[in-house]
């Protein structure tokens, strides 16, 4: 198993942390993982993206030109990464703010309205966990239990009471994908 993923959107949407949680979950499942962010001032409002690779075997390049799966959260990221999904791959996008829809037919294209879902969960910070749930439904790279174990390990004690909410968001995200 080897999954090459890019997650891209605005800084502040939780792009980097979503990638981090995914990478941690991979680690919990005993996989090899890399997490390679775009870094710098764009973390504070511009576009941010992160490449996450989860694999059973040692990973060579952390930098990629094509991806198995892309999760894109704004128009710029959609424009940039749609063409970089491998044929047969998966493109997950948040339809809010998207005016030019994806056009490829050789990949699986899945809209996930994570904003509405996070509003329903009454916590906008669950946004990226909804998307992660959707991603894991499409691509069962790691189990939800691994994500939760990862959260438990990485979150400071004082935030552990938020873990059930995050689990709920993950399941909600999964339910948004057929």
């Amino acid at each position: 198993m080897k999954e090459e993923i890019v997650i891209a959107g605005f800084g502040g949407q939780g792009v980097l942390s979503m990638g981090k949680i995914l990478a941690y979950a991979g680690l919990m499942d005993g996989k090899e993982v890399t997490w390679m962010p775009s870094y710098g001032p764009e973390q504070r409002g511009g576009t941010a993206n992160v490449t996450v690779i989860v694999s059973d075997n040692a990973i060579s390049s952390p930098v990629l030109d094509t991806f198995d799966t892309a999760v894109v959260l704004n128009q710029q990221s959609l424009d940039k990464f749609e063409s970089k999904v491998k044929p047969g791959g998966t493109l997950i996008y948040d339809p809010s703010g998207i005016h030019r829809l994806p056009s490829r037919t050789d990949i699986r294209v899945i809209p996930v309205d994570a904003i509405t879902a996070s509003i329903e969960l009454k916590n906008s910070k669950t946004y990226n966990m909804v998307l992660l749930g959707a991603l894991l439904k499409c691509r069962p790279i790691v189990g939800i239990d691994a994500v939760i174990r990862g959260l438990r390990k990485t979150l400071p004690e004082r935030h552990h009471h938020l873990i059930p909410l995050n689990e709920e968001a993950l399941r909600k995200g999964m339910s948004l994908v057929d």
Binding site: L27, V33, M36, P37, I59, P62
Partner: peptide, 10 residues
Amino acid sequence: DGVVGQMMEK
């Protein structure tokens, strides 16, 4: 370099 400084892995 910035890649190996900024990337996370096991």
